[in-house]
Design a binder for these strands. Structure first.
Lengths: 162, 162
DNA sequence: TATTGTTATACTCTATAACTATA
DNA sequence: TATAGTTATAGAGTATAACAATA
């Protein structure tokens, strides 16, 4: 067995899902950002297994709770995704009776999206999961939260969407 | 036009790729984590367009540079992914002459993976891109870097790989 | 029986390009 | 011509289950 293989065998944790952090990644912000976001997203996703909604749908419902009556194009701007990515989400939400589409009388090509009463209830339910998740993260981060959010926002501002 | 639609129209930035941050997400760590990781990863990916390698391959090359001679299973433990996800990556690296597979004389089922000289050169080249990206992030984060990495590591430790 | 690497398959998230129907 | 929404397609990243070869 090579020395490298030995190092792998001597993983610090007890179970085989633990992973080493290669030395080349130890002080790399991008690496830690990626791994932290991954575990955070997975923890949130796990909570949503009780529902039949995909994790990404929560943000759409929440945007609609805040900006009621947006068109798909407007919605795509708010969430920063291409409008084509919204089609299947809106279909899924519509099939479940969580949103309704209202034809725009001034432009036959377009329509506005509104939460139904059921949609509002579901948004509230998912929001409760999200808040539980947030509280967990807040507890982990502690008093550094404001600083953390500021740093992350700075990264987004500096690297942009380009 | 609804008031929500007006808010969208009055997006702060000049170009249409800017996105609002819905109030419900403003103080949510998970949201900022996701967006920051996304722009960071995209910035790094953009640098790798000069090569014919996928962004994820850099980490495999770098792990091999550090732990030479791992088997695919060992490699999968180090990078924390299922071993089936490595097959196509190893094939891609092998086709390009960046790694070589050495049959394990003690176990005919297995083999060890080594970087070729070309592989080492390519790893160094990608590592230079990564370092450039890291320097950018370091400049953005500034003196808070140690604290940031500590917080992110804490999140990973607390939420685990669940 | 258990493990190794591979294959087949599937799912999430995303994007681009082309299509349609309007404008 | 340009825009709104949709469709078709693709690609990166991931996972599970099953398979053949070997242990």
């Amino acid at each position: 067995m090579t020395s490298a293989a030995k190092a792998v065998e001597e993983l610090p944790g007890q179970n085989e899902t633990d992973s080493l952090i290669p030395a080349a990644f130890r002080d790399v912000i991008g690496y830690h950002l990626r791994v932290a976001q991954e575990v955070s997203f997975q923890a949130f996703s796990a909570m949503l297994e009780k529902t039949d909604l995909k994790p990404g749908w929560y943000s759409i419902l929440t945007i609609l709770a805040e900006y009621d009556g947006l068109t798909p194009s407007e919605l795509s701007k708010v969430c920063g995704r291409d409008r084509s990515t919204l089609t299947s989400t809106l279909k899924g939400l519509s099939i479940r009776g969580l949103i309704e589409r209202r034809q725009n009388p001034d432009d036959q090509r377009s329509y506005s999206v509104r939460l139904t009463d059921e949609g509002r209830k579901m948004q509230a339910r998912l929001h409760a999961f999200a808040q539980e998740h947030d509280r967990r993260l807040d507890a982990i981060v502690g008093e550094d939260k404001e600083a953390l959010v500021a740093i992350l926002a700075r990264i987004v501002g500096a690297l942009g969407k380009g």
